[in-house]
Design a protein around this nucleic acid. Structure first.
Length: 285
DNA sequence: AGGGCCCATCGCA
DNA sequence: TGCGATGGGCCCT
């Protein structure tokens, strides 16, 4: 049973529709009035909602989500990325971002398929819709989005770790969810512990994603080069798509080389939402 | 076999 | 020029 949607979740529903509309009519550059009309809101109300959600007006958000902007973001990020990798996960480059310490369960855990693991899960409202959060004794193990039905997400994770014991325990996951999706709580206390369960290759890709700073982006081939497999960008794409801890392991910050968003496990609209949200937050500083 | 890729080429306005 | 469409190579499950 889901908790009642809070303000953030209701906001996301509007945001989702707006982004869908904008990207479907990108060429037409729809005005605020047009957009508001499409979602059945007053323009001013929509404007306030967006500003509350992302710190951006819909107009600015629209610009932040275009191909041009994505290309520029990639250009600007290229230099920053090197510095971020130097300082690693705990350095000051993580300003504005979650501090994360990670541990890998590989490849034994992959083979063991979660045997001996107790996974506690709960569904929570977030700025990007309903998320199912999975935690283990060793740390946060999964974040997944459920557009319709939490059951689909559970099936998915059951398949990943078929030998693990799953226990619904929203009381255990609620604080993690609250912290992960609330920038005000980032870096406020101890680093967030996460555990990466996957093949050797996958874990290396996911670790690499953790070095992409907040509000920036990298390409699939950047990531491939970064793990010493410069020609494996396609395999990187597949591994990125299997990232079990979405948002926390920022797979939404990986774009095609030309600035295309290419794909996202939880829907391109959500990827756009995350990128735009980060842009707004980074600009606010 | 088949991907959340990438590059080169080609054809068409 | 620019923008699709196509084909071949690539490398991990």
């Amino acid at each position: 049973m889901l908790p009642l949607p809070d303000a953030a979740a209701r906001d996301y529903d509007v945001v989702r529709r707006v982004i869908g509309f904008i990207s479907g009519n990108a060429k037409a550059q729809p005005s605020l009035d047009t957009i508001a009309g499409h979602v059945g809101m007053e323009p001013m109300a929509l404007q306030r909602l967006f500003t509350r959600w992302a710190g951006l007006t819909p107009k600015t958000f629209l610009q932040a989500v275009t191909l041009d902007h994505a290309k520029r973001l990639l250009d600007e990020s290229a230099s920053v990325l090197d510095a971020a990798i130097e300082t690693g996960l705990s350095g000051p480059a993580r300003l504005h971002d979650l501090f994360v310490t990670h541990e890998a369960m590989t490849p034994g855990a992959y083979k063991a398929r979660g045997a001996g693991l107790t996974v506690r899960w709960g569904a929570h409202q977030t700025p990007f819709g309903t998320a199912v959060v999975f935690v283990t004794e060793r740390g946060l193990a999964g974040v997944a989005f459920a557009d319709r039905d939490v059951g689909e997400v559970l099936d998915d994770y059951h398949c990943r770790w078929p030998e693990a014991a799953f226990v619904e325990d929203a009381a255990a996951t609620a604080p993690v969810a609250a912290r992960v999706f609330d920038p005000a709580r980032w870096a406020a206390d101890r680093p967030l512990r996460i555990v990466l369960i996957g093949t050797d290759f996958e874990v290396r890709v996911w670790e690499r994603l953790l070095t992409i700073p907040f509000g920036r982006a990298a390409t699939y081939s950047d990531v491939a080069a970064g793990i010493g497999r410069p020609s494996a960008s396609r395999a990187v794409g597949a591994a990125v798509g299997r990232n079990p801890i979405s948002f926390v392991v920022p797979c939404h910050r990986v774009l095609g080389k030309g600035g295309d968003l290419t794909g996202y496990r939880w829907g391109l609209t959500r990827k756009r939402a995350m990128l735009g949200w980060e842009t707004g937050l980074a600009a606010r500083s």
